[in-house]
Computed example of a mutant assay.
Amino acid sequence: MLVVMALGGNAILQRGQPLEAHIQRENIRTAARSIAAVAKHHQVVLTHGNGPQVGLLALMNEAYEEVNNYPLDVLGAQTQGMIGFMFEQELRNEMPGKKICTVSTQTIVDPSDPAFENPDKFVGPVYTYEEAQVIKNANPAWVLKEDGNYFRRVVPSPHPKEILELPSLRHIVASGDITVICGGGGGIPVRRDSEGKLHGVEAVVDKDRASRALAEGIEADGLILLTDVPAVETNYGQPGSRRIKECTPQEFEAFPFAAGSMKPKVESVCHFVRAGGKFGAIGALDSAEDILTGKSGTFVKVDVPGGIKYYD
């Protein structure tokens, strides 16, 4: 079975954790064990988010005033190398002798996408209200929004139009025995000008939407989005919220999920299933094998008796 597994940036660096390299390494090591349990029996294409990491690099940009700030597309490319290196190394440690490769990936976006007028993609660390006021005063061009009980910076997240490396990725996947790490941060956002030349774009592509486009493009059997929650809840953090075990796309999309966090995940798995994928799923990074067998996470498919099932 060919499975695209997308790991959220917040799973690599969990909410409230210091932005330390060794902490990211430990989280990636945990995720690699979970992913390897699947990759030993199925072909896996792994994608990952980069929100906390690209936000950290942006803060480092601000701190060093001797040069102009590097744009977000360049920072996104740096995170692909950093996170890809750690994942490839940890996966090789978990699966000695297996073929594993990391592919730098670019994603075409539309410069007129409405996302540029209404940024909603969280990047960087979380701040208390008081910290957010200080950050905002120091960076007046930044937009900060509430993220649960905290505040975080938000940037434009245009929809992916095309994955430039898709033909090459199809060729690699056709081998049937290579674990591929690609699509980091949703792919480096780029655009084509009137002459067809490529240029970087100041944005961050949502990795769930890009992973969905990738999964459809390589005709994957399943799409699993790994994050920092064990299952999707009907009303996260509120009294009476219930964890969803299994549902149809129609039932799933009926809930008012947050635009900057869970909504893109829900849209992505629903779109993938409607496009012909056998299943989509959302769950915790350390439960990939159980998610694949329907024992954990939220499982989405076309046919579910009653439309939806909950955990007890």
Rank of each mutant, 00 (worst) to 15 (best):
V3R: 02
V3F: 08
I12Q: 02
A21N: 07
N27Y: 01
H48E: 13
H48R: 09
M60K: 15
E65G: 06
V67L: 15
P71Y: 11
L75Q: 05
M86A: 09
F87A: 06
E94A: 15
G97A: 02
T102Q: 04
I108C: 00
I108E: 00
V109G: 00
D110E: 09
D120I: 13
K121N: 08
K121S: 12
V134H: 14
I135S: 13
W142M: 04
V143W: 03
E146K: 14
D147K: 12
V155W: 12
P160C: 09
K161E: 14
L166G: 05
P167Q: 01
S168Q: 14
L169Y: 04
G185A: 11
V190N: 06
D193S: 03
D193Q: 07
G196N: 01
H199D: 03
R209Y: 00
L225K: 06
V229T: 11
V229P: 06
T234Q: 04
R242P: 08
I244S: 03
K245T: 08
P249Y: 00
E253N: 13
A254R: 15
A259N: 14
S261F: 03
V273D: 00
V273P: 00
A275F: 05
A275H: 06
G277P: 09
F279V: 06
F279C: 06
I282L: 05
E289H: 14
D290P: 01
K295I: 03
S296Y: 06
S296V: 06
K309G: 02
Y311H: 09
